[in-house]
Design a protein around this nucleic acid. Structure first.
Lengths: 192, 192
DNA sequence: TTCGATAACGAACAGAATGTTCTGGAGGAC
DNA sequence: GTCCTCCAGAACATTCTGTTCGTTATCGAA
């Protein structure tokens, strides 16, 4: 544990307060004033640690590495899928607060970018060639995955990680494989 | 044209001002004060027509039917895809303002629900059976489609509607077809 | 235990935004 | 032309933001 105990305490109180409030009212509705009251922390203290609400959210992202499971690229295509769903279930409360619709989705964009990078690397490793078409394919795959993740986070489904993973793979893998193996930039269109 | 001319004029000025401002600063950053200044309209006038910013956004949705192309279910699977991309391109400015990340995504959720209903109907028509697995599949498909739409709206790709459509179909159709024809609720898991 | 550094308190502040209310005046419908 | 509706404009209470500053308490190291 590094740093002053007071600093750790204050930061933790603020982070926890924000998460709790997001779960109650949704991200947009939470004000800085709410947070400092809940955390029982002085106003100036808040601003000496964070620049604003959003900053607190990002700090949560750093402290818990909650969207970076991808232990190793051991398995085949989309190896990230199952571990990521499971990781999300373990950290249920936090993930729900930060990634769900109530979280206002400011982190969804961040998560999508992260995932897009992972997917892109996997597809390249699987033999795809860099192109505008590949980028679009990545968007498709990420969209499908995040759709499932969000549906679970928002409680729209009671499916298990295994079932979510199965749905994802079955829906997306055949098309992706065909596209990679065929190695056609655009199926019916021009490249770029 | 119904109603008082002054009313029409005022409402139109406010709607146009909001769209313009969203394109400049993004939805979140636009204030009611900005809007009434741009529209050159009194403050009380604004609140006599709309309850808030979001209300203006919704009124835009009603006036232009910008996310309801789906002319008829003529073609095969995913018949909505190409017409919808084209429709989006035609209304470029407005769609960019309302659906893009700059639009804050308050309407993305609405669009997703709409699209989910369309996709669900198509899959049922194609022979799928209602189940929890089907709902998850719909989420996947919608996620992939909206991902592409958003990528285009946000200017991340210069692809044409035809190319977007092709990518979508090629990525998603094989898996969906296999799932429907096989008619297996969950590939490797339990139902519900 | 002591002591210097530093973090937190808390109150106050300017600035901006929201949403309401009122009065007088202008524009449109008929 | 008349009457009624809508609009302008200003003022207002309220809420939130982000900053400042003097005081107090807490920490870590010697």
């Amino acid at each position: 544990m590094s740093g002053d105990r007071r600093v750790r305490r204050t930061r933790r109180l603020i982070q926890e307060a924000l998460v709790a409030l997001i779960l109650e009212k949704g991200y947009e509705a939470v004000t800085v004033t709410d947070v400092i009251e809940r955390a029982d922390v002085g106003r100036s203290t808040f601003y000496s640690h964070f620049t604003d609400k959003h900053d607190v959210l990002l700090s949560n992202l750093d402290d818990h590495d909650f969207l970076r499971p991808a232990p190793d690229s051991g398995g085949g295509l989309f190896a990230f899928s199952l571990p990521m769903f499971e990781h999300a279930r373990e950290r249920g409360r936090l993930v729900r607060a930060l990634l769900g619709r109530r979280g206002g989705g400011p982190l969804l964009a961040h998560g999508e970018r992260l995932l897009a990078e992972i997917v892109r690397r996997e597809l390249l490793a699987a033999g795809a060639r860099p192109s505008g078409a590949l980028d679009l394919l990545v968007v498709c795959v990420v969209g499908a995955y995040m759709g499932l993740l969000r549906a679970w986070v928002d409680g729209e489904t009671a499916a298990s990680p295994a079932e979510l993973d199965a749905t994802f793979r079955t829906a997306v893998e055949p098309g992706v494989r065909a596209l990679i193996d065929g190695d056609v930039p655009y199926p019916h269109g021009r490249d770029e």
